[in-house]
Design a protein around this nucleic acid. Structure first.
Lengths: 137, 137
DNA sequence: TTATGTGCAAAACATTTGCAGGAGT
DNA sequence: ACTCCTGCAAATGTTTTGCACATAA
């Protein structure tokens, strides 16, 4: 008989988690790699990917499947939504009240067993619009 | 002086659009490539990518930035939301009523200039749950 | 001690791009 | 004619994986 294997709290994992907790942005795996490498210069990119994936499966962190080519990661697991700047690609948290029965309604309409939802807003952040951004590439 | 370049309606574009219109799923670029290749065996994958991108910029089709590793495409441009099966990866449309002022509220809270939003529900589709899917890999 | 984790490098994917030739207007 | 577009293949960028060694429990 096999019990659930434990996830060891290695130095690498601890530092990845710490660095991810420091920022309010939602860094890509490569950005996490850069942050962590300042403290652990010999860490491999593969390790960062493996651990981000693992931690998101455990629910320790959140893997964001938002727009753009790369996945992003978030240390805040409390339910919240996201807003992405179409100009600079930054992703911020947004805490917006949404009707509570939205999952139940979705289940009734779709005949899916609905486990959750995510809302992503898109727009131009105040940094970019103060720089006079009008059009989007 | 330069006027807006026109997008030619080539055979390739016409067939891509037709094939995309035939299905209610939201195929990946590679799936579109496979569908189109049955009618145009010599079409290149690059052409499919180029045209899907171009058509989504024009608003002819919709590029979905949903979960998973690949982007998906949708011929229905009317506003609608999506629901994704965590087991088989299928993405369906869902037409769910949402409070109308959600973008305005988001703008007030985030100080972004909000241009739109997307809601993605996640769950288990009825096909998968009828096959007795309990857990998710 | 031993299962689990790591660094490294190569592989696997998804997507984009350069270019020479082809096609629409 | 003159663009714009395509097929092809190579390049890019992201993520995953195999393996020998290292390390936490």
């Amino acid at each position: 008989m096999q019990h659930t294997p434990q996830m060891r709290l290695t130095t690498q994992r601890q530092i990845i988690l710490e660095e991810l907790g420091k920022v309010t942005s939602h860094p890509t795996a490569n950005e996490v790699y850069d942050m962590v490498r300042k403290r652990l210069p010999r860490i491999g990119l593969g390790t960062v990917y493996r651990n981000l994936e693992l931690m998101s499966e455990t629910g320790l962190i959140l893997k964001l499947e938002v727009g753009g080519t790369q996945k992003r990661f978030d240390a805040t697991v409390d339910p919240h939504y996201h807003i992405r700047c179409l100009h600079c690609g930054k992703v911020d948290d947004i805490d917006i009240p949404v009707q509570m029965d939205i999952n139940k309604t979705a289940a009734e309409i779709s005949h899916y067993q609905v486990l959750g939802h995510h809302i992503e807003f898109a727009g131009i952040c105040s940094d970019c619009s103060s720089q006079g951004v009008e059009t989007i590439n």
